[in-house]
Design a protein around this nucleic acid. Structure first.
Lengths: 152, 152
DNA sequence: GTGTATTGTTGGTCATACCAACGTTGGTCA
DNA sequence: TGACCAACGTTGGTATGACCAACAATACAC
């Protein structure tokens, strides 16, 4: 066999949306595999990191910070609560809310995850020297800032 | 109250994999909406573009070029065949294969899609001046080239 | 000829990202 | 005080993309 691959068409080869997607797919594969070593997914990591940085918060507030939908947040909190990585308690000051608090075990788990995620970033960005990495982060940040506020 | 939004945690804010994902999500939303105006999805566009550029090919070959899985290719070809945008015929020279050929209607549709996709790219990259766009494409291409050949 | 590979196809799985609707609760303001 | 409206957690969906395993038919190599 000798035609294992042919290049994708010109039209797609340099299409920014497609390149971005490919990179995201690669990143997700690498980060996903890394997190899987600890038995968690991206949502879990994002939630633990947010809790540790901002302290206890309601599910809705956590959803706003992480970009995770309210309904998906329910399942994510369920998962982590079952493992004792966070606690869900009714908010006495507003009975509509649950207060979500990270536990000691959660913090310890987060430390491990940080290490795994950092290694994954390095693998993802392997071909780029430091200056290019900063450059990429800058460009993507500008895209995120511009599109961030949902102006459709 | 007045904290409708808070920023995501520091840990996530500059995480390359996350920034890449956000950008990809934005791109997919924009491109997806554009293609939806013509009633198609990304796979459909990729397939039509590949057919037009390389001419008739088997489903497996098309899958290799586009990165679409064989099984997903079946459904994609089904969709487009039903609409008369391509034709599926058994290959007389290799009876395992189907030869997929784009039709005149397919070419016309592709012209429209090209226009929609181009506009979507522009919307996606709106905050970046031309030099930065080229820069971004370059960086992402280098990532794709490095990760392209599945070296896990 | 026998065994191996490829092809199209079926029928799944998983993760992410959404949306609509519901009952409960809080807050507004008339 | 009561009527509305908004926010919350929750359930139960949907769509898309990206996979994987298995199968019968066919081609190819030895």
């Amino acid at each position: 066999m000798d035609t294992p691959e042919g290049p994708p068409p010109q039209r797609l080869r340099t299409l920014p949306s497609r390149l971005t997607n490919q990179a995201a797919q690669t990143a997700n594969r690498i980060v996903g595999q890394a997190l899987a070593q600890a038995g968690v997914r991206r949502y879990h990591y994002a939630l633990l990191a947010t809790l540790e940085e901002y302290g206890p918060a309601s599910q809705a507030a956590l959803g706003r910070r992480t970009g995770i939908d309210r309904s998906d947040m329910v399942a994510t909190v369920n998962d982590l609560a079952e493992r004792g990585l966070l606690e869900r308690a009714p908010d006495p000051e507003d009975r509509r809310r649950n207060v979500i608090t990270i536990t000691g075990a959660g913090r310890r788990q987060l430390t491990d995850l940080d290490r795994l995620v950092a290694a994954a970033q390095d693998k993802f960005l392997a071909p780029l020297p430091e200056a290019d990495r900063r450059n990429l982060i800058d460009l993507l940040t500008r895209l995120a800032d511009h599109h961030g506020d949902r102006h459709d």
